[in-house]
Amino acid sequence: MFKIGPHLSTSKGYASMGEIALSISANTFQFFSRNPRGSKMKKLDKNDIDKLMTIAGENNFGPLLAHAPYTLNPCSSKESVREFANLVLAEDLERLKYFKNTYYNFHPGSHTGMGIEKAIEIISAQLNFVLREDQETIVLLETMSGKGTEVGSKFEEIAKIIEGVHLKEKVGVCMDTCHIHEAGYDIVNNLDDVLDEFDKTIGLDKLYAIHLNDSKNQRFAHKDRHEKIGEGKIGLEAIKRIINHEKLRDLPFYLETPTDVEGHKREITLLKSLRE
């Protein structure tokens, strides 16, 4: 089954997101765990969560993806920022105990001058602090574009973070097509080679999800500028190959394209028409 859906707002509640997803022919979606530009978390409403879980179960949804806020920076050179990241990670994973079949995605962060190696060590340590053997939620490290001092734009960096995690079965990767394109990986002309490199460096068994986005920029731009499906420098033909690739087609795909719900509906219809 082709598992695809958009990023939806939690403003009207969790169950509402499930209803919106159904209305645009989506069978999964992504949502922010809390205010994406701040720290405020939505009040816990177990009844609302249960309603969403019922909708998801009855309609055979793929895994839902909770996205950590952009303010999270686990490897900042500032101790207070790292402490905030610890708090957010722990609180979000505690909240996600009430959800079933859900992943949690976060940006590895920016080292802000301390260097990649030290940052990797800190991120692994943070994960070791918050991960629990009994948790069901898989935590995903997102591949990044390499803007500024971002960590995670190279597969080797992601691999080293995972290498330092004790409960490796609780972590995986979310591959963002815009990000890896702008980081320099040639998914337009050499998708097979990129996936082979990912497999050799990290392991395809660690790839749990895809952020499916086109890009406003060429390869190596390192700017993280998402574009609507088929309207950017990745292009529709390359995206068609991505969603149909034997090593990717069974993964859930999440749209983070710069459009509204109706725009996502059109993109989902288009992508389903390209599915082989």
Rank of each mutant, 00 (worst) to 15 (best):
V151F: 08
G152P: 03
G152K: 01
S153R: 02
S153I: 00
S153Q: 08
K154M: 11
K154V: 05
K154R: 13
K154G: 08
F155P: 14
E156W: 10
E156A: 10
E157W: 01
I158G: 05
I158H: 02
I158A: 01
I158T: 07
A159V: 14
A159N: 12
A159I: 13
K160T: 15
K160N: 15
K160P: 14
K160C: 12
I161M: 10
E163Q: 15
E163R: 14
E163W: 08
G164T: 12
G164A: 10
G164N: 12
G164V: 11
V165S: 06
H166R: 15
H166P: 13
L167Q: 05
L167E: 06
K168Y: 06
K168V: 08
K168Q: 14
E169N: 13
E169M: 03
K170Q: 05
K170T: 07
K170R: 09
K170S: 03
K170C: 04
V171N: 04
V171Y: 00
G172N: 06
V173G: 03
V173Q: 00
V173P: 00
C174S: 07
M175I: 11
D176C: 02
D176F: 04
D176L: 02
D176M: 07
D176G: 04
T177W: 06
T177V: 02
T177H: 04
H179T: 06
H179S: 05
I180K: 01
I180Q: 00
I180N: 01
H181K: 09
E182N: 11
A183C: 09
A183P: 14
G184P: 12
Y185A: 00
Y185L: 07
Y185D: 12
Y185K: 00
D186H: 11
I187N: 00
I187K: 04
I187F: 02
N189C: 11
N190Q: 13
N190H: 15
N190T: 09
N190V: 08
L191W: 06
D192V: 03
D192Y: 06
D192H: 03
D192C: 05
D193G: 12
D193H: 13
D193W: 12
V194S: 09
L195K: 01
L195C: 01
L195P: 07
L195Y: 08
L195G: 00
